[in-house]
């Protein structure tokens, strides 16, 4: 019973965080700050949803597979973000900085 409530809480918060991250990629002004919004949806949202599903699965093979998915996302999502940011910087895409004259 307690496990059910805990799992629903994790799933709901994870889903809401995903939506907030998706709103973030529409509200932020330039590419580099959008990358931070993608980071929210990639990290905590994914962790919470997988954790909530793991509570539902209990100790089983499914929980182990969820753990594998979690480990894989945990390693690849920062790598993909870094590759994106690095490629964007190398191609000359200028980030919008706070100490420019066009202050937001």
């Amino acid at each position: 019973m307690i496990i059910d409530i805990l799992s629903w809480a994790c799933l709901t918060v994870g889903g809401i965080l995903g939506i907030i991250g998706a709103i973030g990629i529409h509200r932020f002004p330039d590419f580099y700050s959008r990358l931070h919004a993608v980071g929210i949806a990639d990290t905590l949202s994914a962790i919470l949803i997988l954790l909530g599903l793991g509570f539902q699965a209990g100790l089983s093979l499914a929980a182990f597979k969820l753990f594998l998915i979690f480990v894989f996302l945990f390693f690849t999502s920062p790598t993909a973000s870094h590759a994106l940011a690095n490629a964007a910087l190398h191609s000359g895409l200028e980030p919008e900085l706070a100490d420019d004259e066009n202050k937001k």
């Binding site: 580099y32 990358l35 931070h36 929210i40 390693f75 920062p78 790598t79 973000s81 870094h82």
Partner: peptide, 12 residues
Amino acid sequence: NSITLTPGTVSV
């Protein structure tokens, strides 16, 4: 990787 993993900072 851990800098990129925390939202708000991305290693470029």
